[in-house]
Structure formats: C-alpha cells, structure tokens
C-alpha cells in the first residue's frame, strides 16, 4: 500500500491523476494540496510515501518547496510534475532532493512506472526529460578541463600582452577603443580569477594557451 500526496493548484489535475490511479488498489491518494503552505501543514501530520509535486505553485516555487520538504523529512519520494521540459529545471529539482520527474502530459503507464521506480529508491525521468538532460553533454565545451573558454579577442589580447604591449598600443593595433581592450583585459583576469598581468601570463603558459 503506497500513499500518495498530490500537490497542484489546479483541481483538474487532481481529478486526472485520481482517475488514472483508480484501478490500482496498491496505490492510494491520501491527500491533495493546492499551495505550498497547505502542503507543509499537511506534512506536519502525515507522511506520504510519494509526493507528486507541481513545480508552479501560486505561493512558493515548487523547487524551493521540494528543498523545504527534504529538510523536514527524508521519507517521501518526490516526483516533479510539470508542463515544461527544461533541462535546467529537471537537474535543479534532482539537486534539491527530487527523485523523479514527470511531464503533465504523461500517459498512465508512465505515472505508474515512475511511482514504482522511485518507490524502489531509484531516480525516474520521463522519456522527454531524459532527452533534455542528455543534450547538455552534447555541447563540446571545455568540459574536460577547468580552463575557461577564451573568446577570439581575448586570445589576441593575451598574446599581445605577452608580447609586452600596453593597453593603448593593443587598442591601436586591433583598431579597438582602449576601453574595449581594458574590458577584455579585466574579463581575462576575472576568468582566471587572478589580479596581475604576470600571473595571467604564467597561468596562460602553464595551460598552454600561450606558447
């Protein structure tokens, strides 16, 4: 017997989920909350096994509510329920203690699969969410290293700085305003988190950005 709490400000969603789960005797909806405050007060007296949590709530962001629930109790498995399919939201829900992620336009089978998976202590992601998450790793980026990515201009300026040129000279050489060069220089410092030209050049050489 698995107890389920549905948190959604939309009454229709409650009805829809209730309808989908009516033929499952092992699953029982023990509560339905419309706001974050309602949810938190419900959880004072109840400890459901599963929480179907809508991320968009009128009083508090679902992601934050997830974090608050996790801070209070570890038992309930939280499955995010949302109509959006954005990787950022998905990962941040998981980071905040969520156990699964479902899109609202799910099919009945998906819902049952999700409940079953998280109940076993595993993470469940809907098919669409899965695809989104995988997209992140297709970006070639400098994921392999910690080195910040340098823009073309930053590379040019770094080389000229290594040649011993000063800001105004670089500006003249690259047909840029000295202010622009200064901004690039500051950005370089910030990217490498250092505050002197010497250090910048040393790090750049260490990391083979400069010969």
């Amino acid at each position: 017997m698995i107890s389920i709490l549905v948190v959604d400000d939309h009454p229709l969603v409650h009805d829809g989920i209730k309808t989908m789960l009516k033929d499952e005797p092992s699953l029982r909806i023990t509560g339905a909350c419309k706001t974050a405050a309602e949810t938190l007060s419900f959880l004072m007296d109840n400890e459901p096994d599963i929480i179907l949590l809508d991320i968009s709530l009128p009083d508090l962001d679902g992601l934050e509510l997830c974090m608050k629930i996790r801070a209070k109790c570890h038992h309930p498995k939280i499955i995010g329920l949302t109509s959006t399919n954005e990787a950022g939201i998905i990962t941040s829900l998981l980071q905040r203690g969520g156990n699964g992620y479902l899109l609202k336009n799910m099919e009945r089978s998906e819902l049952l699969e999700a409940i079953e998976t998280v109940s076993k202590g595993k993470v469940y992601l809907s098919r669409a969410a899965n695809e989104k998450i995988l997209e992140q790793f297709q970006v070639p980026k400098s994921l392999a290293t910690d080195d910040p990515l340098l823009t073309r201009r930053e590379k040019e300026i770094l080389h000229l700085l290594a040649d011993g040129l000063k800001g105004p000279q670089i500006a003249e050489k690259l047909f840029l305003s000295p202010l622009t060069v200064e901004t690039h220089r500051k950005n370089l410092f910030r990217k490498f988190n250092i505050n002197s030209l010497q250090m910048l050049l040393r790090i750049a050489r260490e990391r083979n950005i400069l010969p």
Partner: peptide, 15 residues
C-alpha cells in the same frame, strides 16, 4: 493543465 488533464483522462480511458 487542461490539456494535460484531458490527456490523463484519455490515458485512463485507454486503460
């Protein structure tokens, strides 16, 4: 939400 709910009902109906 409405579309989702409609889809949920359809899904239940299919079942």
């Amino acid at each position: 939400g409405l579309f989702s709910t409609v889809k949920m009902y359809f899904s239940s109906l299919k079942h």
